[in-house]
Write a protein that binds this DNA or RNA. Structure first.
Lengths: 217, 217
DNA sequence: GGAACGTACGACCGGTCGTGCTATGTTGTC
DNA sequence: GACAACATAGCACGACCGGTCGTACGTTCC
Protein backbone atom coordinates (compact mmCIF):
# COMPACT_ATOMS: atom_id res chain seq x y z
CA UNK A 1 0.00 0.00 0.00
CA UNK A 2 2.79 2.40 0.88
CA UNK A 3 5.17 3.21 -1.94
CA UNK A 4 7.91 2.00 0.37
CA UNK A 5 6.62 -1.56 0.07
CA UNK A 6 6.08 -0.92 -3.60
CA UNK A 7 9.67 0.12 -3.96
CA UNK A 8 10.92 -2.99 -2.22
CA UNK A 9 8.98 -5.22 -4.57
CA UNK A 10 10.25 -3.33 -7.56
CA UNK A 11 13.76 -3.28 -6.18
CA UNK A 12 13.76 -7.03 -5.80
CA UNK A 13 12.89 -7.59 -9.41
CA UNK A 14 14.18 -4.62 -11.32
CA UNK A 15 16.67 -5.62 -14.02
CA UNK A 16 19.54 -3.37 -14.85
CA UNK A 17 19.28 -0.87 -17.70
CA UNK A 18 22.25 -2.21 -19.68
CA UNK A 19 20.91 -5.72 -19.26
CA UNK A 20 17.61 -4.73 -20.83
CA UNK A 21 19.48 -3.16 -23.70
CA UNK A 22 21.56 -6.22 -24.49
CA UNK A 23 18.52 -8.41 -24.05
CA UNK A 24 16.75 -6.37 -26.68
CA UNK A 25 19.74 -6.57 -28.99
CA UNK A 26 19.90 -10.33 -28.53
CA UNK A 27 16.22 -10.73 -29.37
CA UNK A 28 16.37 -8.56 -32.45
CA UNK A 29 19.34 -10.54 -33.74
CA UNK A 30 17.61 -13.78 -32.77
CA UNK A 31 14.48 -12.87 -34.73
CA UNK A 32 16.56 -12.12 -37.81
CA UNK A 33 18.66 -15.25 -37.50
CA UNK A 34 15.56 -17.37 -36.95
CA UNK A 35 14.11 -16.37 -40.31
CA UNK A 36 17.24 -17.77 -41.92
CA UNK A 37 18.05 -20.84 -39.83
CA UNK A 38 14.61 -21.49 -38.40
CA UNK A 39 13.51 -21.27 -34.80
CA UNK A 40 14.88 -24.73 -34.16
CA UNK A 41 18.05 -24.14 -36.12
CA UNK A 42 18.72 -21.04 -34.08
CA UNK A 43 21.73 -22.05 -32.02
CA UNK A 44 22.89 -20.32 -28.90
CA UNK A 45 26.51 -20.42 -29.99
CA UNK A 46 25.71 -18.93 -33.37
CA UNK A 47 23.61 -16.20 -31.87
CA UNK A 48 26.27 -15.39 -29.29
CA UNK A 49 29.04 -14.94 -31.83
CA UNK A 50 26.67 -13.00 -34.09
CA UNK A 51 26.24 -10.30 -31.46
CA UNK A 52 29.76 -10.62 -30.11
CA UNK A 53 29.31 -12.13 -26.71
CA UNK A 54 29.94 -15.45 -25.03
CA UNK A 55 27.48 -18.29 -25.01
CA UNK A 56 27.17 -18.30 -21.26
CA UNK A 57 26.80 -14.54 -21.09
CA UNK A 58 23.89 -14.77 -23.48
CA UNK A 59 22.55 -17.77 -21.68
CA UNK A 60 22.24 -15.81 -18.44
CA UNK A 61 19.33 -13.91 -19.98
CA UNK A 62 17.33 -17.02 -20.82
CA UNK A 63 17.25 -20.12 -18.71
CA UNK A 64 16.83 -22.48 -21.64
CA UNK A 65 16.66 -22.59 -25.39
CA UNK A 66 12.88 -22.73 -25.25
CA UNK A 67 12.77 -19.54 -23.20
CA UNK A 68 14.92 -17.91 -25.86
CA UNK A 69 12.58 -19.15 -28.57
CA UNK A 70 9.52 -17.85 -26.74
CA UNK A 71 11.09 -14.44 -26.19
CA UNK A 72 12.16 -14.37 -29.82
CA UNK A 73 8.65 -15.09 -31.06
CA UNK A 74 7.30 -12.34 -28.82
CA UNK A 75 9.88 -9.91 -30.12
CA UNK A 76 9.04 -10.81 -33.71
CA UNK A 77 5.37 -10.32 -32.86
CA UNK A 78 6.10 -6.88 -31.49
CA UNK A 79 7.93 -5.93 -34.67
CA UNK A 80 5.13 -7.30 -36.83
CA UNK A 81 2.57 -5.38 -34.83
CA UNK A 82 4.59 -2.24 -35.34
CA UNK A 83 5.26 -2.60 -39.05
CA UNK A 84 2.07 -4.20 -40.29
CA UNK A 85 -0.80 -3.93 -37.82
CA UNK A 86 -0.39 -0.34 -36.68
CA UNK A 87 -0.14 1.16 -40.19
CA UNK A 88 -3.32 -0.72 -41.05
CA UNK A 89 -5.14 0.56 -37.99
CA UNK A 90 -4.12 4.07 -38.94
CA UNK A 91 -6.26 3.86 -42.08
CA UNK A 92 -10.00 4.64 -42.04
CA UNK A 93 -12.01 1.61 -40.84
CA UNK A 94 -13.44 -0.75 -43.41
CA UNK A 95 -12.15 -1.43 -46.89
CA UNK A 96 -9.27 1.00 -46.48
CA UNK A 97 -7.92 -0.98 -43.55
CA UNK A 98 -8.32 -4.19 -45.51
CA UNK A 99 -6.18 -2.81 -48.30
CA UNK A 100 -3.78 -1.13 -45.88
CA UNK A 101 -2.97 -4.29 -43.96
CA UNK A 102 -2.00 -6.09 -47.17
CA UNK A 103 0.09 -3.22 -48.43
CA UNK A 104 1.74 -2.80 -45.04
CA UNK A 105 2.67 -6.45 -45.19
CA UNK A 106 4.12 -6.10 -48.67
CA UNK A 107 6.10 -3.07 -47.51
CA UNK A 108 7.27 -5.10 -44.55
CA UNK A 109 8.68 -7.61 -47.03
CA UNK A 110 10.12 -4.98 -49.36
CA UNK A 111 11.87 -3.33 -46.42
CA UNK A 112 13.52 -6.67 -45.66
CA UNK A 113 13.11 -6.26 -41.94
CA UNK A 114 14.01 -9.92 -41.68
CA UNK A 115 16.29 -11.59 -44.20
CA UNK A 116 13.98 -14.59 -44.44
CA UNK A 117 10.74 -12.75 -45.10
CA UNK A 118 7.84 -12.99 -42.69
CA UNK A 119 8.93 -14.44 -39.37
CA UNK A 120 5.53 -15.80 -38.45
CA UNK A 121 4.97 -17.51 -41.78
CA UNK A 122 8.21 -19.44 -41.47
CA UNK A 123 7.64 -20.15 -37.81
CA UNK A 124 4.11 -21.42 -38.39
CA UNK A 125 5.18 -24.01 -40.94
CA UNK A 126 8.27 -24.97 -38.98
CA UNK A 127 6.67 -25.34 -35.57
CA UNK A 128 3.41 -26.77 -36.86
CA UNK A 129 4.68 -30.30 -36.31
CA UNK A 130 6.36 -29.54 -32.98
CA UNK A 131 3.78 -29.39 -30.20
CA UNK A 132 4.69 -27.21 -27.26
CA UNK A 133 4.45 -23.69 -25.92
CA UNK A 134 6.36 -22.19 -28.85
CA UNK A 135 3.93 -23.60 -31.37
CA UNK A 136 0.99 -22.39 -29.29
CA UNK A 137 2.42 -18.89 -29.18
CA UNK A 138 2.87 -18.83 -32.94
CA UNK A 139 -0.59 -20.26 -33.52
CA UNK A 140 -2.14 -17.68 -31.21
CA UNK A 141 -0.43 -14.90 -33.11
CA UNK A 142 -1.59 -16.24 -36.43
CA UNK A 143 -5.16 -16.55 -35.18
CA UNK A 144 -5.13 -12.98 -33.93
CA UNK A 145 -3.93 -11.75 -37.30
CA UNK A 146 -6.64 -13.61 -39.18
CA UNK A 147 -9.22 -12.25 -36.74
CA UNK A 148 -7.93 -8.75 -37.42
CA UNK A 149 -8.39 -9.16 -41.16
CA UNK A 150 -11.81 -10.71 -40.64
CA UNK A 151 -12.80 -7.69 -38.56
CA UNK A 152 -11.70 -5.32 -41.29
CA UNK A 153 -13.69 -7.31 -43.82
CA UNK A 154 -16.79 -7.34 -41.61
CA UNK A 155 -16.65 -3.58 -41.19
CA UNK A 156 -16.20 -3.10 -44.91
CA UNK A 157 -19.26 -5.26 -45.50
CA UNK A 158 -21.32 -3.28 -43.01
CA UNK A 159 -20.31 -0.11 -44.81
CA UNK A 160 -21.38 -1.64 -48.14
CA UNK A 161 -17.86 -1.31 -49.52
CA UNK A 162 -17.92 -4.91 -50.66
CA UNK A 163 -20.49 -7.00 -52.54
CA UNK A 164 -23.12 -8.35 -50.15
CA UNK A 165 -22.37 -11.96 -51.08
CA UNK A 166 -18.87 -11.78 -49.61
CA UNK A 167 -18.16 -13.60 -46.37
CA UNK A 168 -15.67 -12.14 -43.86
CA UNK A 169 -14.23 -15.52 -42.94
CA UNK A 170 -13.69 -16.59 -46.51
CA UNK A 171 -12.28 -13.25 -47.53
CA UNK A 172 -9.87 -13.27 -44.59
CA UNK A 173 -8.80 -16.76 -45.59
CA UNK A 174 -8.17 -15.70 -49.17
CA UNK A 175 -6.26 -12.57 -48.26
CA UNK A 176 -4.17 -14.50 -45.80
CA UNK A 177 -3.43 -16.89 -48.65
CA UNK A 178 -2.31 -14.07 -50.91
CA UNK A 179 -0.10 -12.78 -48.12
CA UNK A 180 1.45 -16.18 -47.57
CA UNK A 181 2.12 -16.99 -51.19
CA UNK A 182 3.59 -13.54 -51.68
CA UNK A 183 5.99 -14.14 -48.83
CA UNK A 184 6.95 -17.55 -50.15
CA UNK A 185 7.53 -16.32 -53.68
CA UNK A 186 9.41 -13.27 -52.54
CA UNK A 187 11.75 -15.32 -50.38
CA UNK A 188 12.18 -18.09 -52.92
CA UNK A 189 12.82 -15.96 -55.99
CA UNK A 190 14.07 -12.79 -54.31
CA UNK A 191 12.02 -10.75 -56.76
CA UNK A 192 10.37 -7.49 -55.64
CA UNK A 193 8.15 -7.70 -58.72
CA UNK A 194 6.13 -10.29 -56.83
CA UNK A 195 5.08 -7.54 -54.44
CA UNK A 196 3.67 -5.39 -57.23
CA UNK A 197 1.79 -8.34 -58.66
CA UNK A 198 0.42 -9.15 -55.23
CA UNK A 199 -0.78 -5.61 -54.66
CA UNK A 200 -2.49 -5.62 -58.01
CA UNK A 201 -4.23 -8.85 -57.15
CA UNK A 202 -5.43 -7.55 -53.80
CA UNK A 203 -6.87 -4.47 -55.49
CA UNK A 204 -8.66 -6.50 -58.10
CA UNK A 205 -9.94 -9.01 -55.59
CA UNK A 206 -11.43 -6.20 -53.52
CA UNK A 207 -13.01 -4.53 -56.53
CA UNK A 208 -10.66 -1.55 -56.69
CA UNK A 209 -9.18 -0.03 -59.82
CA UNK A 210 -6.06 -2.00 -60.57
CA UNK A 211 -4.44 0.64 -62.75
CA UNK A 212 -4.10 3.19 -59.98
CA UNK A 213 -1.61 2.20 -57.35
CA UNK A 214 -1.77 5.02 -54.83
CA UNK A 215 -4.84 6.92 -55.92
CA UNK A 216 -7.31 7.90 -53.24
CA UNK A 217 -10.08 8.87 -55.66
CA UNK B 1 26.01 -52.21 -81.25
CA UNK B 2 25.66 -55.91 -80.40
CA UNK B 3 23.47 -56.72 -77.46
CA UNK B 4 26.46 -58.41 -75.94
CA UNK B 5 28.18 -55.05 -75.53
CA UNK B 6 24.87 -53.68 -74.38
CA UNK B 7 24.64 -56.33 -71.72
CA UNK B 8 28.13 -55.62 -70.49
CA UNK B 9 27.35 -51.96 -70.08
CA UNK B 10 24.16 -52.72 -68.24
CA UNK B 11 25.89 -55.28 -66.11
CA UNK B 12 28.62 -52.84 -65.21
CA UNK B 13 26.21 -50.19 -64.01
CA UNK B 14 23.17 -52.04 -62.77
CA UNK B 15 22.73 -51.61 -59.02
CA UNK B 16 21.57 -54.51 -56.99
CA UNK B 17 17.86 -55.03 -56.48
CA UNK B 18 17.92 -54.92 -52.69
CA UNK B 19 20.00 -51.77 -52.82
CA UNK B 20 17.39 -50.05 -54.93
CA UNK B 21 14.70 -51.20 -52.55
CA UNK B 22 16.41 -49.87 -49.45
CA UNK B 23 17.27 -46.68 -51.25
CA UNK B 24 13.62 -46.17 -52.00
CA UNK B 25 12.70 -46.94 -48.41
CA UNK B 26 15.30 -44.46 -47.19
CA UNK B 27 13.96 -41.72 -49.43
CA UNK B 28 10.35 -42.29 -48.47
CA UNK B 29 11.27 -42.10 -44.80
CA UNK B 30 13.48 -39.10 -45.48
CA UNK B 31 10.65 -37.21 -47.16
CA UNK B 32 8.38 -37.87 -44.21
CA UNK B 33 10.97 -36.94 -41.64
CA UNK B 34 11.87 -33.79 -43.54
CA UNK B 35 8.33 -32.46 -43.24
CA UNK B 36 8.72 -32.70 -39.49
CA UNK B 37 12.33 -31.72 -38.87
CA UNK B 38 12.92 -29.74 -42.03
CA UNK B 39 15.29 -30.54 -44.87
CA UNK B 40 18.17 -29.06 -42.91
CA UNK B 41 17.13 -30.64 -39.63
CA UNK B 42 17.02 -34.03 -41.32
CA UNK B 43 19.94 -35.85 -39.73
CA UNK B 44 21.60 -38.95 -41.10
CA UNK B 45 21.72 -40.57 -37.69
CA UNK B 46 18.05 -39.97 -37.06
CA UNK B 47 17.07 -41.24 -40.47
CA UNK B 48 19.26 -44.32 -40.08
CA UNK B 49 17.73 -45.37 -36.77
CA UNK B 50 14.26 -44.56 -38.12
CA UNK B 51 14.61 -47.23 -40.80
CA UNK B 52 16.74 -49.53 -38.68
CA UNK B 53 20.15 -49.37 -40.27
CA UNK B 54 23.51 -47.90 -39.43
CA UNK B 55 24.58 -44.38 -40.25
CA UNK B 56 27.42 -45.55 -42.46
CA UNK B 57 25.25 -48.08 -44.24
CA UNK B 58 22.81 -45.39 -45.14
CA UNK B 59 25.59 -43.00 -45.95
CA UNK B 60 26.92 -45.34 -48.62
CA UNK B 61 23.89 -44.58 -50.77
CA UNK B 62 24.52 -40.85 -50.82
CA UNK B 63 27.96 -39.33 -50.85
CA UNK B 64 26.94 -36.33 -48.82
CA UNK B 65 24.07 -34.79 -46.95
CA UNK B 66 23.32 -32.53 -49.88
CA UNK B 67 22.99 -35.51 -52.19
CA UNK B 68 20.55 -37.00 -49.71
CA UNK B 69 18.59 -33.76 -49.64
CA UNK B 70 18.44 -33.56 -53.42
CA UNK B 71 17.28 -37.15 -53.73
CA UNK B 72 14.71 -36.53 -51.01
CA UNK B 73 13.29 -33.51 -52.80
CA UNK B 74 13.06 -35.51 -56.01
CA UNK B 75 11.28 -38.32 -54.20
CA UNK B 76 8.84 -35.88 -52.63
CA UNK B 77 8.29 -34.39 -56.07
CA UNK B 78 7.49 -37.81 -57.47
CA UNK B 79 4.95 -38.42 -54.72
CA UNK B 80 3.39 -35.00 -55.24
CA UNK B 81 3.13 -35.62 -58.96
CA UNK B 82 1.42 -38.90 -58.27
CA UNK B 83 -1.03 -37.68 -55.66
CA UNK B 84 -1.87 -34.20 -56.86
CA UNK B 85 -0.88 -33.60 -60.46
CA UNK B 86 -2.00 -36.85 -62.04
CA UNK B 87 -5.50 -36.83 -60.53
CA UNK B 88 -5.89 -33.28 -61.82
CA UNK B 89 -4.76 -34.24 -65.32
CA UNK B 90 -7.30 -37.05 -65.29
CA UNK B 91 -10.14 -34.50 -65.17
CA UNK B 92 -11.52 -32.87 -68.34
CA UNK B 93 -9.33 -29.94 -69.44
CA UNK B 94 -10.28 -26.45 -68.28
CA UNK B 95 -12.23 -25.47 -65.22
CA UNK B 96 -12.60 -29.07 -64.11
CA UNK B 97 -8.85 -29.48 -63.93
CA UNK B 98 -8.56 -26.23 -62.02
CA UNK B 99 -10.95 -27.49 -59.39
CA UNK B 100 -9.47 -30.98 -59.47
CA UNK B 101 -5.94 -29.85 -58.74
CA UNK B 102 -7.09 -27.98 -55.64
CA UNK B 103 -9.20 -30.83 -54.38
CA UNK B 104 -6.44 -33.33 -55.09
CA UNK B 105 -4.15 -31.17 -52.97
CA UNK B 106 -6.65 -31.03 -50.14
CA UNK B 107 -7.05 -34.80 -50.33
CA UNK B 108 -3.29 -35.07 -50.28
CA UNK B 109 -3.34 -33.20 -46.97
CA UNK B 110 -6.31 -35.13 -45.60
CA UNK B 111 -4.60 -38.40 -46.40
CA UNK B 112 -1.62 -37.23 -44.33
CA UNK B 113 0.89 -38.61 -46.77
CA UNK B 114 3.47 -36.58 -44.91
CA UNK B 115 3.09 -35.82 -41.21
CA UNK B 116 4.08 -32.19 -41.78
CA UNK B 117 1.66 -31.39 -44.59
CA UNK B 118 2.94 -30.36 -48.00
CA UNK B 119 6.60 -31.15 -48.40
CA UNK B 120 7.25 -28.49 -51.01
CA UNK B 121 5.55 -25.73 -49.05
CA UNK B 122 7.75 -26.35 -46.04
CA UNK B 123 10.83 -26.81 -48.16
CA UNK B 124 10.24 -23.61 -50.10
CA UNK B 125 10.08 -21.45 -47.00
CA UNK B 126 12.93 -23.27 -45.31
CA UNK B 127 15.37 -23.27 -48.22
CA UNK B 128 14.40 -19.85 -49.52
CA UNK B 129 17.21 -18.26 -47.56
CA UNK B 130 19.75 -20.97 -48.31
CA UNK B 131 21.12 -20.58 -51.82
CA UNK B 132 22.33 -23.75 -53.47
CA UNK B 133 21.23 -26.63 -55.65
CA UNK B 134 18.59 -27.79 -53.18
CA UNK B 135 16.85 -24.44 -53.19
CA UNK B 136 16.99 -24.34 -56.99
CA UNK B 137 15.39 -27.75 -57.20
CA UNK B 138 12.57 -26.72 -54.89
CA UNK B 139 12.09 -23.44 -56.72
CA UNK B 140 11.95 -25.23 -60.05
CA UNK B 141 9.31 -27.57 -58.74
CA UNK B 142 7.24 -24.73 -57.37
CA UNK B 143 7.47 -22.85 -60.67
CA UNK B 144 6.34 -25.89 -62.59
CA UNK B 145 3.34 -26.29 -60.33
CA UNK B 146 2.28 -22.67 -60.73
CA UNK B 147 2.69 -23.02 -64.49
CA UNK B 148 0.44 -26.05 -64.40
CA UNK B 149 -2.31 -24.14 -62.62
CA UNK B 150 -1.87 -21.20 -64.95
CA UNK B 151 -2.31 -23.54 -67.90
CA UNK B 152 -5.53 -24.94 -66.47
CA UNK B 153 -6.81 -21.40 -65.93
CA UNK B 154 -5.89 -20.34 -69.46
CA UNK B 155 -7.75 -23.30 -70.92
CA UNK B 156 -10.77 -22.57 -68.77
CA UNK B 157 -10.75 -19.01 -70.03
CA UNK B 158 -10.52 -20.13 -73.64
CA UNK B 159 -13.51 -22.35 -73.05
CA UNK B 160 -15.44 -19.44 -71.53
CA UNK B 161 -15.79 -21.25 -68.24
CA UNK B 162 -14.56 -18.20 -66.38
CA UNK B 163 -15.43 -14.49 -66.58
CA UNK B 164 -13.48 -12.83 -69.38
CA UNK B 165 -11.88 -10.32 -67.02
CA UNK B 166 -9.97 -13.05 -65.20
CA UNK B 167 -6.21 -13.31 -65.72
CA UNK B 168 -4.50 -16.73 -65.68
CA UNK B 169 -1.43 -15.45 -63.86
CA UNK B 170 -3.41 -13.73 -61.16
CA UNK B 171 -5.79 -16.62 -60.74
CA UNK B 172 -2.90 -19.06 -60.45
CA UNK B 173 -1.35 -16.79 -57.85
CA UNK B 174 -4.55 -16.66 -55.83
CA UNK B 175 -5.21 -20.38 -55.99
CA UNK B 176 -1.64 -21.09 -55.00
CA UNK B 177 -2.24 -18.78 -52.05
CA UNK B 178 -5.34 -20.67 -51.01
CA UNK B 179 -3.39 -23.90 -51.27
CA UNK B 180 -0.56 -22.55 -49.15
CA UNK B 181 -2.70 -21.06 -46.43
CA UNK B 182 -4.73 -24.24 -46.28
CA UNK B 183 -1.58 -26.25 -45.74
CA UNK B 184 -0.33 -23.86 -43.08
CA UNK B 185 -3.61 -23.83 -41.18
CA UNK B 186 -4.05 -27.56 -41.46
CA UNK B 187 -0.59 -28.22 -40.08
CA UNK B 188 -0.81 -25.56 -37.40
CA UNK B 189 -4.25 -26.37 -36.05
CA UNK B 190 -4.50 -30.00 -37.11
CA UNK B 191 -8.11 -29.41 -38.10
CA UNK B 192 -9.61 -31.18 -41.15
CA UNK B 193 -12.41 -28.61 -41.12
CA UNK B 194 -9.95 -26.26 -42.76
CA UNK B 195 -10.00 -28.49 -45.82
CA UNK B 196 -13.77 -28.20 -46.18
CA UNK B 197 -13.60 -24.45 -45.80
CA UNK B 198 -10.85 -24.30 -48.39
CA UNK B 199 -12.81 -26.37 -50.87
CA UNK B 200 -15.81 -24.14 -50.39
CA UNK B 201 -13.68 -21.07 -51.02
CA UNK B 202 -12.19 -22.52 -54.19
CA UNK B 203 -15.67 -23.30 -55.50
CA UNK B 204 -16.96 -19.83 -54.75
CA UNK B 205 -13.87 -18.18 -56.16
CA UNK B 206 -14.33 -20.07 -59.41
CA UNK B 207 -18.03 -19.27 -59.61
CA UNK B 208 -19.31 -22.75 -58.79
CA UNK B 209 -22.21 -23.60 -56.53
CA UNK B 210 -20.81 -23.72 -53.02
CA UNK B 211 -23.63 -25.79 -51.55
CA UNK B 212 -22.93 -28.85 -53.63
CA UNK B 213 -19.70 -30.57 -52.74
CA UNK B 214 -19.47 -33.47 -55.15
CA UNK B 215 -22.27 -32.72 -57.59
CA UNK B 216 -21.48 -32.91 -61.26
CA UNK B 217 -24.59 -31.03 -62.37
C1' DG C 1 30.80 0.86 2.81
C1' DG C 2 29.53 -3.51 2.28
C1' DA C 3 26.12 -7.12 0.95
C1' DA C 4 23.34 -8.65 -2.75
C1' DC C 5 22.49 -8.90 -7.32
C1' DG C 6 22.68 -8.45 -12.48
C1' DT C 7 25.78 -9.25 -16.05
C1' DA C 8 29.31 -11.43 -18.54
C1' DC C 9 33.27 -14.51 -19.08
C1' DG C 10 36.10 -19.01 -20.10
C1' DA C 11 36.28 -23.78 -19.49
C1' DC C 12 34.04 -27.76 -19.80
C1' DC C 13 30.39 -31.72 -19.97
C1' DG C 14 27.99 -35.48 -22.54
C1' DG C 15 25.89 -35.96 -26.77
C1' DT C 16 25.09 -35.67 -31.77
C1' DC C 17 26.36 -33.92 -36.08
C1' DG C 18 28.36 -35.01 -40.99
C1' DT C 19 31.92 -37.62 -42.88
C1' DG C 20 35.38 -40.69 -43.79
C1' DC C 21 38.01 -45.65 -43.80
C1' DT C 22 38.04 -50.44 -43.38
C1' DA C 23 36.10 -54.90 -43.06
C1' DT C 24 32.64 -58.24 -44.04
C1' DG C 25 28.65 -60.28 -45.76
C1' DT C 26 25.51 -60.68 -50.12
C1' DT C 27 24.38 -60.78 -54.69
C1' DG C 28 24.74 -61.36 -59.59
C1' DT C 29 27.61 -62.90 -63.60
C1' DC C 30 30.71 -65.86 -66.01
C1' DG D 1 31.75 -72.36 -57.99
C1' DA D 2 34.94 -68.41 -58.37
C1' DC D 3 35.14 -63.69 -58.45
C1' DA D 4 33.98 -58.85 -58.73
C1' DA D 5 30.73 -55.50 -57.54
C1' DC D 6 27.69 -54.05 -54.32
C1' DA D 7 25.48 -53.35 -49.60
C1' DT D 8 26.03 -52.72 -44.99
C1' DA D 9 28.32 -52.52 -40.47
C1' DG D 10 31.92 -51.01 -37.17
C1' DC D 11 34.60 -47.52 -35.74
C1' DA D 12 36.79 -43.05 -35.25
C1' DC D 13 37.49 -38.14 -36.36
C1' DG D 14 36.73 -33.18 -35.54
C1' DA D 15 33.20 -29.87 -35.06
C1' DC D 16 29.35 -28.16 -32.93
C1' DC D 17 25.23 -28.69 -30.03
C1' DG D 18 22.54 -27.20 -25.54
C1' DG D 19 23.69 -26.64 -21.00
C1' DT D 20 26.39 -26.04 -16.38
C1' DC D 21 29.90 -24.72 -13.73
C1' DG D 22 32.90 -21.30 -11.01
C1' DT D 23 34.40 -16.71 -11.26
C1' DA D 24 34.77 -11.75 -11.73
C1' DC D 25 33.29 -7.07 -12.52
C1' DG D 26 29.77 -3.31 -12.00
C1' DT D 27 25.39 -1.56 -10.00
C1' DT D 28 22.12 -0.90 -6.78
C1' DC D 29 20.39 -0.62 -2.31
C1' DC D 30 20.43 -0.77 2.65
Amino acid sequence: MSDAADQIIRAQRRPRADGERTRGAILRAAASLATVDGLEGLSIGNLATAIGMSKSGLYAHFGSKQELQLATVEEAGRIFEEEVVQPALAAPPGLDQLVAVCEAFFDHLRRRTFPGGCFMASAALEMGTRPGPVKELVAAFQSRFVALIRGFAATALEQNELPAHEDPDQLAFELNGIILVTDTNFVLHDDPGVLDLARQIVHRRLGLDSHRTAGQT
